[in-house]
């Protein structure tokens, strides 16, 4: 993966990932590993901000499927924000969005998670 990187930050126990670039090969598994690492530390809320994601293909979809599964296994909460329409359409078709909360903006997700806690 030449065009993929991840920024992350933690706000009030919520970890926010901002992947950047192309989610189209096994290099993007780092996002899944990063989520798993935070979950294993006991953090329950994960937000993924899609604003910097350029492209997601079937391999990328597989990686997000894996993240959804891990969130479920840890009884945690996953939010997607800033999704482009093309991505949300595909995720809806794949049934991924049934398992996550989708917000327009990152701050909306953070507020929701703060209120839920």
């Amino acid at each position: 993966m030449n065009n993929f990187s991840i920024l992350s930050k933690t706000i009030n126990g919520t970890v926010i990932f901002m992947p950047k670039g192309y989610v189209n090969d096994l290099g993007a598994e780092n996002l899944e590993h990063a989520c798993e690492e935070f979950l294993s530390k006991g953090l329950k809320n994960v937000v993924i901000n899609f604003s910097e994601i350029q492209y997601i293909n079937s391999i990328g979809a597989s990686i997000f499927t894996g993240i959804v599964q891990k969130i479920a296994e840890h009884d945690s909460m996953l939010c997607f924000t800033n999704m482009k329409k093309v991505h949300s359409d595909v995720f809806e078709m794949l049934g991924i969005t049934r398992h996550v909360k989708v917000f327009k903006e990152e701050k909306d997700a953070v507020n929701f998670l703060n209120e839920s806690d």
Binding site: L26, S58, I59, A61, S62, T65, G66, L94, G95
Partner: peptide
């Protein structure tokens, strides 16, 4: 593209499996 790439056989097959799991949203 993946199965004909220059990657190792194991990497090609792993990626192929990921394509399938991504297409049908199968985590395992």
């Amino acid at each position: 593209q993946e199965v004909t790439s220059a990657k190792s056989f194991n990497d090609r097959m792993k990626t192929a499996l990921y394509v399938v799991t991504g297409m049908f949203s199968v985590p395992k």
